[in-house]
Each structure stands twice: as C-alpha cells, then as structure tokens.
Design a binder for these strands. Structure first.
Lengths: 216, 216
DNA sequence: AAATGGTTTAACCATATGGTCAATTTTACC
DNA sequence: GGTAAAATTGACCATATGGTTAAACCATTT
C-alpha cells in the first residue's frame, strides 16, 4: 500500500551506512552490518552503490555539506558583535549536540589522508564559497577598526571559538572520566553541563576579544 | 657484535606498532605492515604479544601514560596565574607539536567505546591521581577568591584551554583547507602559525578570565 | 660437540569480508 | 493476463587477514 511514503531502499541504505560509518569509520564498518541495520540483503548495497568506498564517499559528502551549510546558517544577523558571537556559539553547540559524532568522524577521516575526504572537502568549500569564515573575519576586522575589539588575529580567534565548542564533543568520554576523577560520586548532568558550557565559552571568548589596555 | 645496544625486537615491534596504530587505528592497522616496518617476520608479533589486541593495548597504555604524565609536567611553577597559564599553553602546544596524532587517536579510540581504552584511562587517572586538573582548578579558585579573576567556572575554563590548544592538531587538514580557501595562493607557514596561535590563545583566554565589570 | 632452550622463519590454516552471479520476486506497462 | 524491466535474494567466490605450526637457527652450557 505504501500510503505513508516510506523511504526508498537507497535511502534506507544511506541512513544505515551513515550510522555505521560514523560509529566505526571506514575500515571498521562492515557491509553486512549496514545491510542488517537497513533491513535488506547485502547484495543490494552493491546493486545500488557498487562498492563500499562509493557508499562511504556518499556519506562523507552528505555529512560535509550538511554540516557546513548548517554552520553557515548559524551565522545569525544580530546587530552587535556580541549578539552575533553568542548566536554563533549557541547554534554551533546545538548543531553539535544533535550530531555529536560528526566532528570526530571528519577529523579522523581527514587525518587519515585519504583522497576521498580531501576531494570532497575541497568541492564542498568551493561550492559553499565559505561565506561564513570570511564574513566572521570581516566582521571582527570591522569591529576592530571601530575600536571595539582588541588586536587579536581574527582567524586565530575563529579557531579558538571552534576548538572551544567542538572539543567537548570530540573528547566527551575523556572529559567525563576526568571529571569523575575530580569530583567522585557526583553524577554527570549533560544538559546542565552544556548550558553552563555555552555561557562559559561566550564569557571567556567575548571578554578575551574585547578591547583592553595593558599586557603583562 | 651489537656493541651499540640496538633495540630489542620487542622494542622494534612496539615502535612500529605505535606508528601504524596512530596512523590507522585498530581496525585499519595490518599486522603485516607492523612486521614490515619493524623489519621482522610477522610470526614474531604473535610470539611476543599473542594477539593484535594485546599489542594495541600496550600502545594505548604507553601513549596514555606518556601523554598524561607530560601534561602533568607542563604545569609549571610560575608565580603569577598569568605565568602558569602561559607556561601551560606553551608546553601543551610543544607536546602536541611533537605528537600531533595523539589527541585524535585517543579521542577516536574512546569514542569507539571499546573497553580497552576506558580501562586504561581509568587506571592511568587513578595512578597519576590527576594532580594537574585539581591543581589548576584550585589555583583558579584561589585567584578568584583573591579577586583577580572573574567568576568563570574553572572546569569549563580548563576545557576551553584544552580545546583551544588541541583543536588545531586534531583538525589540521580542515583548518588548512579552509585557510587556503580564504586566502588563496598564500602558502601555509606552520611554524609561524603555531607561534601566532600560542600568543593568540593566551591573549584571548587570559583576558577572558580576568576580572571585569559589566556583562551585556 | 652434543644438548638445551630461547628466537626466528616459511608455510599453512580458518575465517571474515568485499564483491559477484544466477535465479526469483516484484513492479510497471500493454 | 502476459511480458519486460527493475528490484531483491541466497549461494558462491577470491582474497585479505589474524593467527598457528613445525622446522630451522643460534647462543649458551656442559
């Protein structure tokens, strides 16, 4: 009957493959597991995509473009720099909370040095024309010239923002374990922690960038 | 003759295995490649360590304890908080520059959720008693009570420091590609970039933590 | 030099895994 | 209903891979 437009097999495969590749990486993923999770026969994977690497490349492409375009959208239209920064941090953290495995997956893939990932990254960057970093850098430069912000290099600042937001999600198990060893017995409240993290990142980075006087 | 104390086969294996596992992860590494890089027969791997997982666990243990103990040492004895923070950032960046693949390796392993890594992490933390985080947190609290630092949560601040330092190394290929797309044609000078990074992190984070007045 | 015990190797094994094939089922169209 | 094309499947294949075995090698002791 199919009144409710259930997803095509191709779509089922891509979803399952996304899950498995995100969890285990290219070499750790098994075609059989993808097939099982998609609820189909393994041969269908090859029927639709020929090879494992093809599926992987598709996933990589989807993840890349989805993630980057969502980051683009995270660049709000607030008036003040403070508002833009806050919105950017908030939306980036939301995006990360919804896709906690993505950063590690992308980093790991790129570090492996495979050409697949690099090609896709280059294509994605070319396609999206990276308006976000340029706009952010431009905005910071502008505020600096207006005398509102200190002389910190905008690109370095951007990397610090990204690192501050992303690190927790990439290293969550380590962070948790270390926290537990610092505060034994205290359970980890992820929601509260992320809310606090949000505020803390903004506080430190905003005031770190604001204009000041002396330097030790 | 062997006058010059060349490394034992076991040592050769561990070195080669370290390289291969750091590059490719557990599932991506091949026993044959480890043997080849060590310049020995594959059977010797099993003779000394029985299984692949055993070798992997040894590497994981070495990397963990070496890395954590070196981070401990990075906690200098400077007088002012500014000096301690600067020294910590400097030494952490040095350590990362010397072992750029370690963070991603550890993160990836922990995220995979294997018990090997978690066990070793717990043991390492218990063994080293994590003096560093505790000391750093204590120092920040102390300075806050003395009225020198703002009310930012010390643990959150610590994560921000780590993220700011580590992110670049974990995501270097992405960062480079994005930079190239922002500044086409300009070659990437890694040395200069890292020197600038060092200064920028300190500037932003130190002034971000310092006491201030208003809050938007 | 024979014996002993640790080390090293080539050949081999069992299984896992990506991928193919032929046959069957389903769908679309007449 | 019949037919052709697309979709789907179970059986199968070739290779890669972690691991084992038995024999050879080598150093040390007696």
């Amino acid at each position: 009957m199919n009144t409710q437009a259930d997803p095509s097999k191709e779509e089922l495969i891509l979803r399952a493959a996304g899950d498995v590749f995100l969890e285990k990486g290219l070499s750790g993923a098994r075609m059989q597991e993808i097939a099982d999770r998609a609820g189909i026969n393994k041969t269908l994977l090859h029927y639709y995509f020929r090879t494992k690497k093809n599926i992987y490349a598709r996933i990589l492409g989807k993840v890349f473009s989805a993630f980057f375009s969502q980051i683009e959208e995270a660049f709000g239209d607030g008036s003040s720099f403070a508002a833009v920064l806050r919105q950017f941090i908030d939306r980036l953290l939301d995006l990360l909370a919804a896709n906690p495995r993505v950063p590690l997956f992308l980093m790991q893939e790129l570090a492996q040095g495979g050409t697949i990932a690099r090609d896709i990254l280059v294509k994605t960057l070319a396609h999206q024309r990276m308006t976000l970093p340029k706009r952010l850098v431009a905005l910071i430069r502008q505020e600096q010239q207006a005398g509102h912000l200190g002389p910190v290099d905008p690109i370095q600042f951007m990397i610090t923002v990204l690192g501050s937001c992303i690190y927790f999600f990439a290293a969550e198990p380590i962070v948790r374990e270390v926290l537990a060893s610092i505060q034994p017995g205290k359970p980890f409240d992820r929601e509260a922690f992320l809310a606090q993290r949000r505020q803390s990142i903004f506080d430190v980075l905003y005031y770190g960038l604001k204009k000041r006087e002396q330097s030790p």
